[in-house]
Design a binder for these strands. Structure first.
Length: 585
RNA sequence: GUGCCCGUAGCUCAAUUGGAUAGAGCACCAGCCUUCUAAGCUGGGGGUUACAGGUUCGAUCCCUGUCGGGCAUGCCA
């Protein structure tokens, strides 16, 4: 047996079972042979349910088939014994030596342990956050950021070539509203008071940007503000006249009044907000390879081109002056407008162009991480891809449910308009980057997340992230007090690791690459968080029951090799989640 | 009204996607520091997996219905 590089035991055994199955019957080559980790030690380390799967077609007793499979199973140097159990499970017991020797592999692999090539270098794009650059990121964006970044790291570890992308919505009405809001605040600084619409952006950051413009350019952008209020729809019922129509007319007037200067302010606020966003995310440990501008799709004519393509394929029609896409042909509940009566393309139109562009860039798989409120949007986007002749299965959409903040046992309000939402930056300051990153991926992403600020702050010692980090720090502490050379541990004899706790820890270590593989396949970063907590738990228990710095060097080295391996995995796993692994706490 | 998602211990959540006796953390109770970090450990009680049927060797998972919750149903982005 090759002692240097042990196999992935699950795929290794699956292959053996396939050979055994072929020996007793003709097996469908597409049949997936599943090896599962057992929950209980008496069932061994891995179990296979192949006999039960074959029972139907063979019309035989599953236990009988299981015994036959075991009889035909090729020899493996890693198997201690096999047993037929229960309804027809085949349980595999690994040799202790195989488990023990695995530590050498872990310690040799170091930072690379856990990585694999199951992705085969396939190109994947992960698009996430993609928040409108119209204000600070809030805690909802934070969850998308944490999940997207962790998932990207996991996919990279699993052997995919990952590209992280942020789609910048710099072309739409929201940006115009922000531009107008900023200009109004700027006029206010120049002692020109115009009633501030309640449906414009209220946040203080708007005043800050207005101040920056005022500071740099003085009165440069004060233009005939008196005509701003021309042609506004008349309020019909009292003061609550801040309608969308009114806001749009204000924007139109501002564009007319400002002329070229409108573009300056628009560009200024965009640059400011994007810069703030990028900075915020960087401090959160989240970085992107590409910031893709929506506006560029218009500038390059890609939106018009894409709509023409759809038209050529006869998926468009005119009605009520607008242009519609026949998304009902692809399972959507109604057709969707791509070009409005006024000639403007809709957001959907540019989004089709964007997704076409993604695939034209050569990605094998495209993953969008969206807020769950966008779920109704999926059929039309996939439909558009199909209409363009692309396989919609190459677009995978991971929905992330909202994070609901709780403070003092009550829901914290997150109304943007009232300006009282909690920003990601505030959250980071309150609970710290590590706790926030870990907390965000502690739940399955398609589950609602209750983010208890009181638990994450005042009782921060009970936060799970400290539990994992503490395990890492404890190992570091032991190793630093040991007077030896870490390199000596790599080839230490591991035969002394024979207790139930030690063998269970060894198996847990062996599981790590599988966890990454499954987390990548299922797009489920939370599996890493759960695994790390379990590993830390088993370590803490072991720590309390066993001394490491014992006189007998063969025992000492074996145990230190074990905990050094644990430390390596904790460090590697936390890195995937964007969490620090401190040496001291 | 219609569509999608969800309902698991007092609370917050898992369960290798159909596997063996459904698991953790909080919270509660009782213990463990003169010895490598007590942000830790050990033990204990806690469940008809919302409810009722169905499919099969086997169901928290799949199907049907009922009840309850969330989201979506723009020529917004």
């Amino acid at each position: 047996m090759n002692l240097l590089i042990p196999p992935n035991f699950r795929t290794h055994f699956a292959e053996l079972f396939r050979q055994a199955a072929n020996a007793i019957t003709t097996v469908d080559p597409t049949l997936r042979i599943e090896l599962a980790r057992t929950k209980q030690a008496i069932h061994g380390d891995y179990s296979c349910n192949l006999a039960m799967q074959l029972a139907k077609t063979l019309h035989k007793n599953p236990r009988e088939i299981a015994q036959s499979l075991v009889d035909h199973l090729p020899d493996s140097p890693y198997i201690e014994k096999t047993e037929v159990a229960g309804a027809g499970f085949i349980n595999i017991f690994l040799k202790n030596a195989a488990k023990q020797h695995y530590l050498t592999f872990v310690l040799r692999s170091k930072d690379m342990f856990g990585t694999s090539n199951v992705g085969g270098g396939k190109r994947i794009q992960v698009e996430f956050v993609s928040a409108n650059p119209t204000g600070p990121l809030h805690v909802g964006h934070g969850r998308g950021a944490a999940i997207g970044a962790s998932l990207s790291n996991i996919l990279t570890a699993a052997g995919y070539a990952v590209s992280r992308e942020f789609y910048v919505n710099d072309a739409g009405r929201q940006m115009d509203i922000l531009t107008l809001s900023t200009w109004l605040r700027y006029l206010d600084l120049n002692s020109i008071e115009i009633p501030f619409p309640s449906n414009a952006y209220q946040g203080d950051y708007v005043k800050v940007m207005a101040g920056l413009i005022h500071q740099a350019h003085g009165q440069r952008y004060v233009h005939q503000p008196e005509s701003l209020l021309q042609d506004l729809p008349i309020a019909t019922n009292g003061e609550t006249d801040d309608t969308d129509e009114r806001l749009d007319q204000l924007i139109a007037n501002a564009k007319k009044i400002l002329g070229q200067d409108y573009a300056y302010i628009h560009n200024f606020v965009l640059t400011e907000q994007l810069g703030d966003c990028r900075n915020d995310l960087m401090e959160f440990g989240v970085e992107f390879d590409t910031w893709f501008s929506e506006q560029s799709l218009f500038d390059n004519g890609l939106v018009a081109h894409t709509i023409q393509l759809l038209d050529k394929k006869h998926f468009l029609y005119q009605q009520d002056g607008a242009t519609w896409f026949r998304s009902t042909r692809f399972g959507d509940e109604k057709d969707r407008v791509v070009q409005r009566e006024n000639g403007q393309f809709t957001y959907f139109a540019s989004d089709i162009a964007y997704h076409l562009n993604k695939f034209e860039r050569g990605f094998d798989l495209v993953i969008n991480i969206w807020g769950a409120d966008h779920h109704g949007y999926i059929p039309r986007v996939k439909g558009a891809l199909q209409a363009l002749g692309l396989d919609p299965a190459r677009l995978e959409i991971a929905l992330v449910q909202f994070a609901v903040l709780y403070r003092n046992g009550k829901k914290a309000s997150m109304s943007t308009r009232a300006g009282e939402f909690v920003t990601l930056r505030e959250l980071r300051q309150e609970v710290g980057k590590d706790a926030a990153r870990f907390f965000y991926v502690m739940r399955k992403s398609d589950q609602h997340l209750d983010f208890d600020l009181d638990l994450a702050t005042s009782q921060s010692n009970e936060n799970p992230v400290y539990y994992v980090q503490y395990a890492h720090a404890r190992v570091c502490s032991v190793l630093s007090q040991w007077e030896g050379d870490r390199a000596d541990l790599v080839d230490a004899g591991m035969a002394a690791l024979t207790t139930a706790a030690e063998l269970a820890l060894l198996q847990k270590i062996i599981d790590y690459p599988d966890v990454i593989e499954i987390a990548a396949k299922e797009l489920s970063p939370h599996l890493i968080a759960f695994y790390l907590r379990e590993l830390a738990s088993e370590f803490h228990s072991y720590y309390n029951s066993t001394r490491f710095l014992v006189p007998d060097t063969s025992i000492q080295h074996a145990r230190l090799a074990l905990i050094a391996s644990i430390q390596q995995i904790l460090s590697n796993g936390l890195r995937l989640l964007g969490v620090n692994a401190p040496d001291k706490m």
